[in-house]
Computed example of a mutant assay.
Amino acid sequence: MAKPPYQQIADDIRALISSGELSPGDRVPSARQITAKWGVAIATATKVLALLQQEGAVTVVPGVGTVVSGLSKVGRPSKRDHGGLSRERIVAMALDIADAEGLSALSMRRIALELGVATMGLYRYVRGKDDLLLHMIDTVFGEIPMPKRPEGWRLQLDAAARHTWAMFKRHRWLAPVMSLTRPQLAPNALSHTDWVLKSVEGLGLGHEAMIHIHVMLFSYVRGIATSLEAEAEAEQDTGLTNDEWMQGQEAILSTLAASSRYSTVVKLMLETELDLDLDSLFEFGLARLLDGIAVLIASPPAPKGGRSRRAGSRR
Rank of each mutant, 00 (worst) to 15 (best):
M1D: 13
P4I: 03
I9Q: 05
D11R: 03
I17Q: 11
S18W: 08
S18G: 05
S19R: 03
S19M: 09
L22T: 00
V28E: 01
P29N: 03
S30F: 02
A31T: 11
A31E: 10
A31S: 14
A31G: 11
R32K: 14
Q33M: 15
I42M: 02
I42D: 13
I42Y: 13
I42F: 12
A43V: 01
K47N: 06
V48F: 04
A50F: 10
A50S: 13
L51N: 07
Q53L: 13
Q53M: 10
G56D: 07
A57F: 13
P62S: 12
G63C: 05
V64A: 02
T66M: 11
G70K: 07
V74L: 14
R76C: 11
P77R: 11
L85K: 03
R89M: 05
I90C: 01
A92M: 10
A92E: 13
M93S: 07
D96V: 08
D96Q: 06
A98M: 04
L106I: 06
M108T: 07
M108R: 05
R109M: 10
L113F: 03
E114M: 02
V117R: 00
M120D: 09
L122W: 00
Y125I: 09
R127T: 12
R127K: 14
D130W: 00
D131N: 10
D131T: 05
D131L: 00
M136L: 08
M136A: 11
D138F: 04
E143W: 06
K148Y: 03
R149P: 12
P150E: 01
E151G: 08
R154S: 01
D158H: 10
A160W: 03
A160G: 04
A161F: 06
R162T: 01
H163C: 09
H163R: 00
W165L: 01
A166T: 11
M167V: 03
K169W: 07
K169M: 13
R170Y: 08
H171D: 07
W173V: 00
V177N: 06
V177M: 14
V177A: 07
S179M: 09
S179P: 07
Q184W: 08
L185G: 10
A186M: 06
P187I: 02
N188T: 03
A189I: 06
A189W: 09
A189V: 01
L190C: 08
L190W: 03
S191T: 01
T193P: 07
T193R: 15
D194L: 14
S199I: 06
V200A: 09
E201C: 13
G202K: 02
L203R: 04
L203K: 04
G204S: 11
L205P: 03
G206C: 02
E208P: 01
V215I: 15
L217C: 05
R222D: 08
G223Y: 12
I224H: 03
S227G: 12
E229C: 01
A230Q: 12
A230L: 10
A234H: 11
T238Q: 09
G239H: 03
N242E: 14
M246R: 12
Q247Y: 09
Q247D: 15
Q247N: 14
Q249D: 09
Q249L: 11
Q249V: 06
E250P: 00
A258D: 11
V266F: 00
E271M: 10
L274T: 07
D275F: 02
D279V: 09
S280E: 12
E283K: 13
F284V: 13
D291A: 01
G292A: 07
G292E: 03
S299F: 04
P303C: 09
K304E: 12
G305V: 04
G306S: 11
R307V: 06
G312E: 09
